[in-house]
Simulated assay, not measured.
Amino acid sequence: MTTSVTDSPRPARSYATGPATRGLRLLSLLAALAITAWILVRYTSLPPTVPTHFDVRGQADDWGPTWSVLVLAAVMLLLSLGLVALSAHPRVFNYPLEVTARTAQSVYREGERMMVAVLAGVQLIYLGIALSILDGPGSGVLTWIGMAVLLGSVVIGIIRLVRAGR
């Protein structure tokens, strides 16, 4: 038998989110909205085919219809909005440890921080892809930086979660 988070004995969240976490969440949300707006503004001036895939050097190696840029924008915006909403509710996360009344607040805080850092990494990836599509090759380094931030956020976040759970 499984239980949902709402049925679980996990305590409610009671800590206040720090200003750095709130600021990074807001900045990431604004970045997602700005990148999406930029794509929409540039959409009518795009050629009939646009790059849809890039090799490890950032060079386009597959092409598709212009409307595929709208799919990218929709997916990335929805992903970003989902991460913004999820990061504000760390009680529902699936933690790699038992959350007790004694450790809950510190575990929730670290979970929230990790999700906001993941959100920031996603924005760097989104910007790198958008730059590569709209302004041509050479922007792949930003995508790689975003992937490094994303991976680092998860690894460091899990380490911090485990320490907070002790």
Rank of each mutant, 00 (worst) to 15 (best):
A85F: 11
L161Q: 12
M147A: 13
R113V: 03
P137R: 10
L83W: 01
I133M: 08
V69Q: 14
G152I: 10
V141Y: 08
A60G: 03
G136M: 02
Y95M: 00
A73N: 07
I129Q: 13
G64R: 03
S87H: 07
T143S: 15
R160A: 10
I125A: 07
V69H: 09
P137H: 14
M114C: 11
A104P: 04
R91M: 10
I125G: 09
G140N: 04
S132F: 03
F93W: 06
A104N: 06
V69P: 08
G157F: 01
S106V: 11
V141C: 15
G111S: 05
L70F: 08
M114R: 05
G128P: 00
M115I: 12
M147T: 11
L151E: 03
V75W: 07
S139D: 15
A88P: 05
P65D: 15
I129L: 10
M76L: 11
L127F: 11
L134N: 14
T100S: 08
P137K: 15
A73T: 01
G152W: 03
G121W: 01
L78C: 11
V84I: 10
Y126D: 13
V155W: 06
R91T: 04
G136K: 06
A101S: 12
G64M: 10
G136Q: 00
S80D: 07
P96Y: 06
N94M: 07
G82F: 09
N94V: 08
L131R: 14
R91P: 13
V92I: 11
R102M: 10
A117P: 03
P90W: 04
L151S: 13
V116I: 00
L83D: 09
G111I: 10
L77T: 07
G64T: 03
L70R: 12
L151T: 11
L70I: 12
G128K: 02
L83I: 07
V75R: 03
P90I: 01
V122N: 15
I145Y: 05
R91G: 15
V162I: 09
M115N: 15
D135Q: 10
S80G: 15
G146W: 06
D62P: 08
V141W: 14
M76W: 09
M114Y: 01
I156G: 06
D61S: 03
V107G: 07
L142F: 09
R102H: 09
V116M: 13
L127Q: 04
V92L: 12
S106N: 13
G152V: 07
L70Q: 14
M76T: 06
L83Q: 07
N94Y: 05
V99Y: 01
